[in-house]
């Protein structure tokens, strides 16, 4: 049987998700034996661009060149899988999105000289440009969740990314609840899969796996408000990884609460 052809690509981001895969040293042979890896710039030379079964994309879209690449890629791959919060949600670099301040911030960093090589724009997730089949979120992705889904995808099964909240895995690790300790923890509204890494180190969840299946934002919001957090504080935390998805809902809740 012909092995499925896969490609791993990297747009704007730290490449930490691809690195997470390469860090699976014990399973690395499995990863490369289970498929024909035709393109993986970070891992091998002699990459070829051809028809694919699955394309894995790490990083968000920030230039016209990347946008063109996505349009070129989509027709020649059967499935597109987003790896990590950048490609799924826009990533940390999308935290100020929709505020209308992008150009100002861009100029502040890069000066006003025109960019010649590529045309940059505000960071966006991959699905803002092309249809995406599956999302493996996280900053970075969880190695076990990747390996589990990689094996499924190679066998033609759909990805299986349970969107139960972080609290589930957090309790498995017997962590003290940080919300009960009045910390601004996003565990209940954030999708698990991370093995509750942050709360297990006594750090509140910052939402890097994106929204859980059923985020009760209203209740989380009133709880945080009760604990004395202000809207800007909550918003900053949510924006960090959740991108703009949560914000609108929170804003209306905040307005309602002000009345």
């Amino acid at each position: 049987m012909n092995k499925p052809k896969v490609g791993f690509y990297n747009l704007s981001g730290c490449s930490g998700c691809l690195l997470t895969i390469l860090n699976c040293e014990n399973q690395l042979l499995d990863v490369f034996n289970g498929a024909e890896v035709v393109s993986f710039l970070m891992a091998q030379s002699n990459n070829v661009e051809k028809e694919l079964d699955i394309a894995f994309i790490d990083g968000s879209v920030t230039t016209d060149e990347q946008e063109e690449f996505l349009h070129e890629l989509r027709p020649r791959t059967k499935k597109v899988v987003c790896l990590g919060s950048c490609s799924c949600y826009g990533g940390v670099q999308a935290m100020e999105n929709e505020k209308g301040t992008w150009l100002k911030r861009f100029n502040k960093v890069y000066g006003k000289k025109p960019f010649k090589v590529v045309k940059p724009f505000e960071s966006k997730p991959v699905d803002a440009f092309i249809p995406v089949d599956y999302y493996l979120p996280g900053c970075p992705i969880d190695a076990d969740q990747f390996l589990y889904n990689y094996a499924r995808l190679l066998r033609g099964l759909p990805a299986d990314v349970p969107k139960t909240p972080v609290c589930l895995e957090c309790k498995w690790h017997e962590n003290e609840c940080l919300l009960l300790k009045d910390k601004l923890c996003l565990g209940p509204v954030t999708s698990a899969g991370c093995k509750a890494k942050c709360p297990s180190h006594n750090l509140p969840c910052i939402g890097c796996f994106g929204p859980a299946d059923e985020s009760n934002l209203t209740s989380e919001f009133s709880l945080l408000k009760e604990k004395g957090y202000t809207f800007p504080e909550i918003e900053r935390k949510l924006r960090l990884f959740g991108g703009v998805k949560f914000i609108k809902q929170f804003k209306s809740l905040w307005k309602k609460a002000q009345k």
Binding site: C167, G187, E214
Partner: peptide, 11 residues
Amino acid sequence: DKCLSCGACSM
């Protein structure tokens, strides 16, 4: 309305 459906109670 209040439940966060975090599942901690069951755990």
